[in-house]
């Protein structure tokens, strides 16, 4: 018999609710995205206020749009972390309320694991090396021995932060990835920037400083955008390649907000071909933060026995994905 579960995402700028079935059908995925003012990043409190005001409409849209009766929900999942405290709490309150009023279990989900599991579902990927690139994460991950393991990561900024902070320096509003990608597409003039690969890890702070300096020194936004993309993307592609060569896996998957960037997927695709690995990328609609990643992973966790009493259903701002026991894979 088909079962249904609702998932609530609210780790950063996105408040989203989704209903999925035990067969992996996404029946609804309603969302509202907080947009900070020009030149600014996410203000956690402002974002949480935005989530509070959009929550009722998003929730209604997701539940009604799914065509699933409230009484048919087996459980409610929520993003427990990692993320911004004020934002996480909004989602947790919504999920607790829904679960308690329906009398169904509440399932905590790690947001990053959510990105990966939804990606695997949608792209039919089984055992990939994952490049998770977003505003909150830059990690190279692979599954081994009951957990998703981190094989490499950024030692400082995430790729999303690098792009956002660079874009904001130019006066754009976060997220700036798309504007930078557009600006870069009209340049072929590479300006030398620091390329910092340390073992399996990358570091972006020097690259950010140097890029800002180039802008301040009068270089065009388009040339610097091109150069920052070429440098940063080559760095993450190189460390992903290292993880691929090291683990000998046959699949590579890109997930997270920055997965939407075409130049990055080009580089990853060239690299994967060199190792005869299959490259998959989560479809655009689901590559950024969304309720479906929480609902689907919530289902996987729920069916392997994970749930939390309401009294213990807090949020965890810092929650590395390699601390999550994965009972549904072997």
């Amino acid at each position: 018999m088909k079962r249904y579960i609702a998932g609530v995402e609210s780790t950063a700028h996105t408040f989203s609710v989704s209903v999925v079935s035990s067969e992996g059908e996404i029946l609804s995925n309603a969302k509202s995205v907080y947009k900070p003012p020009e030149g600014a990043g996410i203000h956690p409190f402002e974002a949480s206020q935005s989530h509070i005001s959009s929550a009722p409409a998003v929730l209604t849209q997701a539940l009604e749009g799914s065509g699933v009766g409230l009484g048919d929900l087996s459980a409610v999942a929520y993003a427990r972390g990692p993320g911004l405290g004020p934002c996480l709490r909004v989602g947790a309150v919504v999920a607790r309320t829904l679960a308690s009023s329906l009398g169904v279990p509440l399932v905590p989900v790690n947001h990053a694991v959510g990105h990966i599991e939804l990606g695997c579902l949608l792209t039919k990927t089984v055992d990939p090396v994952v490049l998770l690139v977003s505003g909150g994460h830059t990690m190279i991950i692979a599954y081994a021995g009951g957990r998703w393991r981190i094989l490499g990561e950024s030692l400082d900024l995430t790729l999303g932060q690098l792009l956002d902070q660079f874009g904001r320096h130019h006066g754009l509003a976060s997220p700036c990835g798309r504007a930078i990608e557009e600006a870069a597409s009209s340049s072929r003039n590479y300006l030398r920037l620091p390329y910092a690969v340390k073992g399996n890890d990358v570091s972006f702070s020097g690259l950010l400083t140097a890029s800002k300096q180039l802008l301040d020194g009068g270089e065009s936004f388009s040339d610097v955008s091109y150069s920052i993309q070429e440098t940063a993307f080559a760095m993450v592609t190189e460390v992903t390649e290292r993880a691929l060569a090291f683990t000998g896996k046959r699949e590579v998957m890109i997930v997270g907000g920055v997965a939407a960037n075409i130049r990055l997927s080009q580089m990853m695709s060239t690299m994967s071909a060199r190792h005869s690995a299959r490259l998959t990328a989560t479809p655009l609609e689901y590559s950024g933060d969304c309720g479906a990643q929480i609902a689907w992973t919530g289902w996987l966790a729920y069916k392997s026995g994970v749930s939390v009493p309401v009294a213990e259903s807090g949020v965890t701002q810092s929650w590395r994905l390699d601390n999550v026991d994965i009972a549904w894979r072997d």
Partner: peptide, 29 residues
């Protein structure tokens, strides 16, 4: 291929961190 000359504690610690990462990542047992 990624070796370099350095005496900074930071670089030496990054070196050890990679072993630690590999051991917990690839040989959890």
């Amino acid at each position: 291929g990624l070796s370099f000359r350095a005496t900074r504690l930071e670089d030496q610690a990054v070196d050890l961190r990679l072993i630690k990462e590999t051991l917990t990542g690839a040989h959890p047992g």
